Computed example of a mutant assay.
Amino acid sequence: MTPVIFGEDGWFTAGDNGRTTKSFEINYINNDVIQKEKKHYTFENTKWDNDWCYLRIPNKKNYKLDKNKLILKGTDITLDDVDSPTFIGIRQRDFNATISCNVEITDGEAGITLYMDENHHYDLAIRKCENGYEAIERLNIGDIKSVEKSIYLENKNNISLIINASNSYYSFSIKSENEESILGYAKTRYLSSEVAGGFTGVVIGLYACASNSFNYAEFTNFKCMYK
Results as ranks from 00 to 15, higher is better:
I99V: 15
K145F: 12
I105S: 01
Y190V: 07
Y185I: 11
D107Q: 13
I159F: 03
Y122T: 06
E104W: 08
V202D: 01
Q92P: 07
H121P: 03
E104F: 05
A97H: 03
S193E: 14
T113A: 15
A165M: 13
T106A: 05
A97M: 07
V203E: 01
A210L: 02
S146T: 15
R91V: 00
E154A: 11
S150K: 15
A210F: 02
A210G: 09
H121R: 07
A196R: 03
A135V: 03
V202I: 15
G205C: 06
A97D: 00
R127M: 06
E109W: 09
T98Y: 01
N167E: 14
A97R: 00
G197A: 04
H120C: 05
Y133A: 00
I204S: 00
K175V: 00
A125T: 11
T98Q: 06
Y207L: 09
L139D: 00
R189C: 08
S192R: 03
A135D: 01
E104A: 11
E179K: 15
I88S: 01
Y115M: 06
V203T: 09
S181Y: 08
Y169F: 13
G184T: 06
L206Y: 00
E137I: 11
A110H: 02
R93L: 11
R138G: 04
Y169N: 13
K149A: 07
I204A: 01
D94Y: 09
V103D: 00
S146I: 14
T113V: 15
R189N: 12
S160H: 11
R93A: 04
T200F: 12
N178Q: 11
I151T: 08
I141Q: 10
S181R: 13
A125F: 07
I141L: 10
S166G: 14
N96W: 04
T188N: 13
I90V: 11
E118R: 12
C209P: 02
S166C: 11
Y115H: 12
S192W: 03
N119T: 09
L161Q: 08
E177D: 15
E148S: 11
S171D: 03
T98R: 05
E177Q: 15
R138C: 07
